[in-house]
Every structure is written in C-alpha cells, then in structure tokens.
Design a protein around this nucleic acid. Structure first.
Lengths: 346, 346
DNA sequence: ACGTTTTACTAAAACGATTTAGTAACCTTT
DNA sequence: AAAGGTTACTAAATCGTTTTAGTAAAACGT
C-alpha cells in the first residue's frame, strides 16, 4: 500500500526544503531564482515518485478547485444533455472539470444545489436558473463569484448570460406558419415564468399581430413544468381534442413539450401535417429523423455552451471584466410538419 | 464583504474551544459528554452566524468529499443522459453530489479523467469503462476505492458491476425476427471490444444458430466508435446499398447506431418496415414516438442507475463488502418496425 | 576591500477543520 | 476523607500545501 507522496517526501529526496519543491512544481522556478539544476532534479523526482498534489491542501491555501459547477433543469433532456456535453468538452480544454446538478425546476432543490456547489468551492458557475434562484444568484454575483447564466437570465440582474433570440425565433415560426396560409395557431408552453418562455410567448403574440391574426386565449395551453411525461401527454390530448376544430397548427415552445404533443396527436389518431401543422422551438433526434420531420426553430447549442465556458473562464482568470450579454440567433429548419394551405385560401 | 465564519469564530462567540464546536457540529455531543446547554448554544450560534464548514479543511483531515465521480461515454447520449439523471437523483438523496465526465471512448481522455477524479478525491466511482481503462480501474480497486462499473465490465476483474443481460436481450431480438419469418438478419454494431457489445453479438450469433439461420459475414457491419454521426450515416448508407438484396432485417446493437441507420434508410428512400425490418438494442424518444415505432430491446435504465448508486454508497459507507454483480433483465418492446413475413413463407 | 545586490535557497506561519491526549472540577464509594 | 470515576471541557498536533519573511554565500561595483 504505497503511501501517498507529498511535497515533503520530494523535498527529502532532493535534499531541499518543501518551499523549493512547491515553487518548482508551480512553475515559478525561474521567477524565484531556483537553479536550473535543482529545478530539473525536482521535476524528475516528482515524476519518478508519481507525485500528485493534494487537492484539499492546495484548495485550502489557494481556494481554487479547477472545477466549474453546472446547473441545468434536467440533464437527460436533449437540449441540456447536449449543452452539458459541450460545456464539459470546452471546460476540459481549459483545464477544468465540471460538476453538474439538475435543479428539476424545484425550489428547494435549486437552493440546496447551489449552496452545495458553493460549499465545494467551484471556481465558477454556469446556471440555467429557475426563477426561485434569483436571491441565490444575486448573492453569487454580489460575492463576485464568476457566474454565467445560460438559456435564460434575470432581466433586472446585471450578470453574464448567454441566450438565444427567443422573441425573433418565435416570430419567425409564426411568420412561417402564416406564410403557408395558416391562420389559427395554437400555443403550447409551460407555466414557469422563466424569461425565455415569456419571450417566446411574446414572439408568438407579435407574430399574430404582424400577420393580422386574432389572438384566441382558448388556443393557449400552459403545462405545469415538471409533470411526468405521461401526464403531459394526457393533458395535451384532452386540450387538442376539445379544441379540435379550433386550430390548424400548434407552436410548441420547448422540445419536450413538442415530444409530448406528438405523442398526444399519435394517441388521438391525428395526422401531422395533414390534420394539423406543427412547429417547435428547439430541435432533437425525433424531430430531425422522425416521420414526418418536424419544422423547428433550432438553437445553436454548441455555440451557446462554448460561449458560456469562454466567458466564464475569462471571468475566473481575470476577474473584474464587464458582464457579457450574449444573444445568439436561432435558425428555422424547415421540414415536413407544416402543410401549405395558401393554395386553398388564396 | 462578510468574511467566512470558521469554527474558531463560533468558538470565540460561544466562549469555548474549537474542539468543542467541532464535536457538537459533528453530532458527537452526547457521545463526548458535552452538556446539553452548550451543545444547543453552539448549534444556535452556528445557525445564526451562517456557518458552513470548509470543504477543503474537512477533506484534508477526513479525506471525504461527499462526491461521486461518474464516467460515461457521452453525456448527451440518450442512454447515458438518462442514466446520469437518475444517478444524480439517487446520489442526492444520500447526500452526495456527482461529478461527471465523458470519456468519449478515447484512450488519453479516459485516463486523464480518471486521474483527475482521483486527484479530487471522489468518495466513489461509477464508471462505464472503456477497454483502455482496465489498468486504471484495476488500480482503483486495488487501492480499495469504492467503484461500480455500469453497462459493462471486465470479465477478468472482480469488481462491482451493474449490467443488463445483453446476451439474452439480443437472443430475444433475433428470436423475434425469426418468429416473423425473417431469415436474413444483418447486424450493425461498433468496433469497440467492450464486453456488452461482444455479448450482444454473441446473442445474435446464438439466435441465428437456434433458428437454423446461416451466419453471413457480409451482413455484419462494424462502425468505428466515436465517428461523427454524419460519417456513420454515410458509411451505413453505403453498406445498406451494397447489400440491398442481402437482408430482410437489421439488428442494431446500440441506440445511436439505430438512429444513424434510420437516417441512412431515410436518405436511401428505403421504407421501414416494408422494405426492411428494424430492431434495436436500447430505446429512445425517436424509436418510441417516431413513425414507424421501432421495436427495441429496452434496458431498465432507472433500475441500473439506482442499483449502481445503492451498491456504491453501501461500499463507501461500510467498506469491505463483497463485490456485487448485478445483471438485470431486458425487455422486448414490440412496435411497428418488424414486418411479418411468415404468411408468405409458410 | 568594502558595501550592496543577487542568487539560491529555508523556517515557520497559515489555510480550517479533526483528533489525540490531556486536565480541572465535581461526584461517588467505602 | 482518600481513591477512583465521571463530566465537561481544552491545548496542541495534524492533514499537505503556499506564502511571507527571511538568510548565508557569492557576485558585483567602485
């Protein structure tokens, strides 16, 4: 059971003090006027003795962990899973590991998670914040801890964030539907008051207005966040069934709502796009490869993650930079879920 | 800028020594004969002063982090994403957070990751090991670090693991196809020598044999692991095109191969199941909700994750338990991707 | 050849907890 | 009332680093 080698063991082996070893292994040999000979001797010894610095001791002195905390709603969600992957990749490139937690959009859990991460001294935080987290996030920023919000943000909080242009994305979607002669567009969204959802709804409203379409409250369905999928499907099936004649298209504001919606249509025997057109904010494998392909407003996930890590690491390594507010463009990806009605209408 | 409160601050406020405070806050007051009065006074003070123990100092003394490391191939993959989610949930219930890394089935990265995690003193490890990781995993176990392998394992290594019955899952798949009168079954798998893939292949082979079907080497396609999806699709399209007449069904040994395969069929204009039947090991949203629904051998992801955490935490908290080898059953989920040919043949 | 600078290091404190080895003061017991 | 036990604490060491404040010896400038 080879005992862990410490800096002292190396010091003893090299016949010098721990200080010298520490200096050399932190690459400050030149700066601290340690002789070339001694430096390379120590480096070789460290290598040979398989020295690995003790993370706790180092952290205790320096406060650094080389770890960033990532908080998302749900790691198993297509969007967040892919986000997380790129965050991890990019972080790794810059020498950081990532600790992730799912908030499940749950008040208690959101808070606990953040406290836990702070206790564990993350060097920085990338957070898709739930609305409950406002006080905690505020505190984080007050305390000058490097933080980047992602996917959504708090309008009244001056923080780093990376989002997409939700408003124009939704507007594009409605314009697209309208351009195909569709006039009755239902909206399926969730009941969180997260800003990105609000913006998507606003985009929808603006789209209706711009295209001279009436807003019909009965065509808006809000699904409580966090419901299990089957429950969402049931609820949507009921809604669709009740409003059957009332709409020609449905705009879903998130990819998991879209999935539930498609399942509901399938259960009801409603065909897409023959009986109803569908468009969804955010993409996934099902939309891309399923039959029919679902037309979506796709988000540049990779870019979002990359930017977030970039901004965060910059902030970690040279604090005091101004908050970056990054808003990326979405992209409409036309597939087969929207039927052209304009021939009929015009 | 409120300075962090330490145990000493509380000690000072309570007029006692740091020792006493430490004892009380670790719940050992009774055991150590600290008076009720003093104990509750200290607890109240800790609360009021918002004391949070320093993770590094604690770790330095005790070696514990309350963190478990999770290594998967790719967190954005449906299977691993869902696995990770449940791991996180279960770990959270038991007071642990999880740090995750994607190995990307890459030799260098696999090793680095594991070293990094060990450096950061995870209390335990849940690993979907790449074959390269054998030496590292061996070392982990030698050093008595709590470790559970998941999804796959090393046959020659006596370790905890949680897998599914890959052999019988595949056998079921082939039996199912055969029962529908299908006789020419192609196999699409990857080129890793991970045991779960090997077992799935073995199950396929056994299935052929049991059903009196000839093994045709030209109907087996191995896709190099880690190729970008488009490349996989191209390669598969080529393969399918070349062997067009040679097979009636394809058995995919993993869910991402299945996705690529469906895309290839779609690109070639080949219809499932009219022109080719499809069955896949492992499920996802596309298979479940796409048209046609894909018949799959589904894995009990939740259960796997739960078991893994359970076994790991047991090992962490009372070391010296015998390794658990847990093999869970798979389940065939019949959908619409397999055409019944038996009426024609018999 | 004298004072100053530079070189090449080191001793000890500090980070914030836990743990070991005590020790007064009080309480029993005989 | 002396011996022994219990109660309710504490001082100091320790974990493994980094950092501050040195110091002896060599080199340099004049």
């Amino acid at each position: 059971m080879a005992k862990k080698v410490s800096i002292k063991d190396i010091a003893a082996a090299a016949g010098v003090s721990a200080t010298t070893v520490s200096i050399v292994l932190n690459g400050r040999a030149r700066e601290m006027k340690i002789s070339e000979n001694m430096a390379s001797k120590i480096e070789k010894l460290a290598e040979k003795m398989q020295y690995r610095p003790n993370h706790f001791a180092k952290g205790l002195r320096t406060g650094k962990t080389n770890t960033i905390g990532l908080i998302v709603d749900d790691i198993s969600n297509y969007f967040f899973g892919h986000l997380a992957k790129v965050v991890e990749e990019e972080a790794d490139k810059k020498g950081y590991t990532v600790m992730f937690c799912s908030s499940e959009n749950n008040e208690g859990k959101s808070r606990n998670i953040l406290n836990m991460l702070v206790d564990k001294h993350m060097d920085g935080y990338i957070i898709a914040p739930t609305t409950f987290m406002l006080p905690e996030v505020e505190k984080l920023i007050d305390e000058k801890r490097p933080t980047v919000l992602i996917d959504r943000y708090f309008p009244d909080l001056n923080s780093n964030f990376v989002t997409v242009d939700n408003f124009n994305g939704s507007l594009d979607a409605v314009n697209h539907l309208a351009s195909k002669g569709i006039r009755k567009i239902a909206l399926v969204t969730n009941d969180t008051d997260q800003i990105q959802m609000q913006q998507r709804i606003d985009g929808y409203l603006e789209g209706l207005k711009k295209n001279g379409l009436a807003f019909d409250k009965s065509l808006v369905k809000k699904i409580p966040f966090g419901w299990p999928e089957e429950k969402q499907v049931k609820e949507l099936a009921q809604f669709f069934n009740r409003q059957r004649a009332g709409f020609d298209a449905v705009f879903f504001t998130s990819n998991n709502l879209g999935v539930a919606g498609l399942e509901a249509f399938s259960n009801l025997g409603i065909n897409v796009p023959e009986q109803v057109s569908v468009i969804c904010f955010d993409d996934n494998d099902l939309f891309r490869l399923g039959k029919p392909g679902i037309t979506v407003v796709s988000q540049p996930i990779k870019q979002m993650a990359k930017k977030a890590v970039e901004v965060l690491v910059r902030q970690i390594e040279q604090s005091g930079t101004e908050p970056s507010n990054i808003v990326l463009a979405t992209q409409m990806v036309e597939r087969d879920s929207v039927l052209n009605k304009s021939t009929r209408n015009h």
